[in-house]
């Protein structure tokens, strides 16, 4: 069990190293010159060369990468061109704004998707299943900004129950998280339903019925615990992605978080910020993947005794 966790941690570290390489490469893929960005259009060649030298851009690429890793390890992600602030403190502020939204959105997805998944699995191939599954597909197909605007129009403007944007406490969380919940729930529904249907075909479910277990017990004690693994896997990656920034949602609801920062940085070619947000998003996904891998140990005895 301990060796399993150690192996997973080492694997995650390797993935993180690869991600730093990708984030680093980003700076070279973006068709813009950081020196020119800083100095402006009219700067002389000498000024540009001086800035390049100051930024270390005149060194060989591998050396630059090692320098970059060294700065990363010291918690230095560079300075934003636009805000002229350390990227780390910028990310920290925006992350704290995104965090409650990501958690609320994640909960909304789970609270809508999982009960519907169980419901449709128990009524598979009946009209209730077809109806709910079709509605879920509609939800899945709606663009976040469009659904967000509709919700804002009806429940922020026509019926002014919720604020029209910004983050001003609990009420402002409702509409954006509901938007993501409606769109994201369909994944959970489909995942749980197909997994449950597969488990229900097993003899041990027939065995449970033969024991005289009631339907509720069969579903909650035998089917769901065996079917929930893929859902947990996806939920882990999902929360990582959500925390890494919700570009569309934050933009629609004027939410000043990581997603909005990423959007802005992309528009302005603020490369240190782009690199920072990409790195943060990737680290979050890897981190929650690791959390899920460790969770398996407690959920599945087959891994526990490995």
């Amino acid at each position: 069990m301990l060796s399993y966790i150690v192996r997973r941690v080492i694997g995650s570290l390797i993935v993180l190293l690869l991600i730093t390489a990708i984030a680093f490469a980003l700076a070279y893929l973006v068709p813009s010159d950081p020196a020119r960005m800083i100095a402006g259009v009219h700067a002389s060649a000498a000024t540009l060369a001086e800035i390049r030298h100051k930024l270390g851009l005149d060194k060989p690429v591998p050396v630059q990468y090692v320098d970059y890793l060294g700065r990363l390890l010291r918690g230095n992600l560079g300075t934003s061109f636009i805000y002229d602030r350390p990227v780390v403190s910028l990310l920290k502020d925006k992350f704290l704004a995104t965090l409650p939204l990501a958690l609320a959105a994640w909960l909304a997805e789970l609270l809508i998707g999982i009960p519907l998944g169980i419901y449709t699995a128990r009524r598979a191939r009946r009209s209730a299943d077809y109806l709910v599954s079709a509605l879920a597909l509609v939800g899945l197909s709606m663009p976040v900004f469009w659904l967000g605007l509709i919700l804002l129009y009806w429940f922020g403007f026509k019926l002014p129950i919720f604020p029209l944007g910004g983050h001003t406490g609990f009420m402002s969380l409702v509409l954006p998280s509901l938007t993501i919940g409606i769109v994201g729930a369909a994944y959970y529904l489909r995942l749980l339903k197909s997994s449950m249907l597969e488990v229900m075909g097993n003899d041990y479910i027939r065995t449970a019925r033969a024991k005289g277990a009631g339907e509720r017990r069969v579903v909650w004690r035998h089917v769901v615990p065996n079917a929930v693994i893929p859902v947990i896997t996806y939920a882990g990656i999902d929360i990582g992605i959500l925390m890494g920034g919700l570009i569309m949602t934050e933009y629609t609801f004027n939410w000043n978080g990581i997603g909005a920062l990423m959007y802005e940085a992309l528009q302005q070619s603020d490369i240190p910020v782009i690199m920072g947000t990409v790195l943060l998003a990737a680290v979050l996904v890897v981190l929650f993947n690791l959390v899920v891998d460790v969770l398996y140990v407690f959920l599945d005895p087959r891994i526990r005794c490995d």
Partner: peptide, 16 residues
């Protein structure tokens, strides 16, 4: 009661 053919499929893998 019933005993099924496949002893691999007839026991819940999560239950001791």
């Amino acid at each position: 009661q019933i005993v099924f053919q496949d002893p691999y499929a007839s026991l819940n893998p999560r239950y001791s």
